[in-house]
Simulated scan of single mutants.
Amino acid sequence: MSLPRILVTRAIFPDVVERLRAHFEVEANPEDAIWTPAELAARLADKDGAFTTGSQRIDAALLASAPRLRIVANMAVGYNNFDLDAMNAAGVQGTNAPDVLTETTADFGFALLMATARRITESEHYLRAGRWTQWSYDMFAGADIHGSTLGIIGMGRIGQGIARRGAHGFGMQVLYHNRSRLTPELEAQCKATYRDKQDLLRSADHVVLVLPYTAASHHLIGAAELALMKPGATLVNIARGGIVDDAALAQALRARRIAAAGLDVFEGEPQVHPDLLALSNVVLTPHIASATEPTRRAMANLAADNLIAFFDGRGALTPINTPNATARQGG
């Protein structure tokens, strides 16, 4: 019996590819080529499964050209690259990589918050440019973290991790907004108080976004929301591009409507809005919140485990949809 055929859409750890080769016939992408949708569809035409990294779009058009495809395993916790309705209709299982990146991403979110509030990137650029010639009392005076008010929008596992760091490590008052309230036990663990979005934006000194990207959360933070924030407030986005209206944010930063922003994700990434690139009061990082080697390895291995378990008949370990079981039976 022939082995199932798997496409690995981007370069990943070679040892993880070798793990997959023990179970599947694998077409890898060691050169890390960025395939167009048409190229991706052509490569998936004879594949039973795919290993994606979060940026490859899986939609109805692609699924129509991949009749054998039965599972797509995302090496990411987010899956806004998946059209789940189309995948359900086509009978294709989707999986993600939750939990394994929670603490690493929360670490980075807090690091980005601190870099933004304390103007670390801006001051480093100033120093490297040879402009530091003397001390002054107001040189790069930023905002305090300790004892301030932290607002978190999106209180899943990562949001809870950031809340614990703020409340327990820095004595911050933590406010949060979420689609549903946490249990009283979790609120106590995080020392967090539920607020509606508008109240949170008005009250917080620092706002961190950690919610999934959906049609409902598109431009959740736009000009109207930024106008609610304190003039000295900071905004950090480690969630997904598109949750923030980047053009409106650039305008608010340019006008000093808010003090600063820290962004790890962008609309249309890897492209970044040119107005953001021109500003000094924004810290920009290239979608690296989960980027430690142990965490990225854990994410890759979980995606591989999902593929292996699925084709072994045990079912996906971290499924994100319920596909139509009769839509396709595989090749």
Rank of each mutant, 00 (worst) to 15 (best):
L101K: 01
A86L: 06
L175D: 00
G151E: 04
A106H: 04
G232H: 14
S203P: 07
L253P: 04
K191G: 15
R157H: 10
N29V: 08
W35R: 13
N81L: 10
L235D: 02
A248I: 07
T326V: 14
Q189P: 09
A111K: 11
D59K: 11
R254F: 10
G154Y: 01
L228Q: 15
L63D: 00
L7R: 02
M155V: 10
I34N: 06
N80W: 11
L226W: 02
L226A: 07
P294K: 05
A252N: 05
E225D: 05
A298I: 05
N74E: 03
A259M: 08
E124F: 07
I34F: 12
P286A: 12
A247Q: 11
R131W: 04
A192F: 11
M139C: 08
G154C: 08
Q271P: 04
H125L: 15
T102L: 03
A42T: 14
V244N: 01
S148V: 15
G142N: 06
V236M: 01
I153Y: 00
I71L: 13
K230G: 06
A89I: 14
T53C: 15
D107F: 02
R68H: 09
T149R: 13
A106K: 02
E39R: 12
L253C: 07
A73D: 01
D312W: 09
